[in-house]
Amino acid sequence: MEKKIKKLFTVWKFAEEEQWLNEMAADGWELTKVSVPNYTFKKTAPNNYIYRLELLDPKLTKKEREDYIDFIKETGAEKIGEFSNWIYFRKKSGLGPFNLFSDLDSRIVHLERMFHRLLWGFISITAVLLFLITLTAIQPYSIILPIIAAVILVLILCLFGYGLTQINNRKKVLEEERKFRE
């Protein structure tokens, strides 16, 4: 039996996404295919797989990227999908615990990667909108268009600002802990 679910997770909700996939697996729904925002699940025995998500460093070359994915595969995991630089890994739970990160440092680096990705997304969208606002503003007959564009810009500013704070807060918690332990 197959089930398709449409669901959208923002960058800062990655932990929730991972948790959701693992809860689905616990209920006997294993993720077989992902092309955001579409998730395809197959009915199987419960708790068959452990799912982990990772945002790869965008600066990696194609070769380095493959090298890394191969390395993870050699540890018994498999890659079931990717979305831009997000990789979806899973491992049979019978093979033991599955984590991608085992220390605070690597978790902090992972969060920093998300922060930068979001920041760049924010900068590019803002640049495009500002360009559109100036373009519409110089047309004397239209007052509505620049106002709409400005409102959208403010909304996007709030959304991204919220997202960046969320990631930053999670990072701060880890950094506080880092002062006392590895």
Binding site: E54, Y68, F71, I72, E74, T75, G76, A77, P97, N99, L100, F101, S102, D103, D105, S106, V109
Partner: peptide
């Protein structure tokens, strides 16, 4: 040793206390 071998050896040496995750080990 190769990557997975390191993970297994470290787990054994530390009697299961230290379990290196693949991504952390790669870094």
């Amino acid at each position: 040793l190769h990557g997975y071998g390191i993970m297994q050896k470290v787990e054994k040496m530390s009697k299961g206390r230290v379990i290196l995750a693949a991504g952390t080990l790669y870094g």
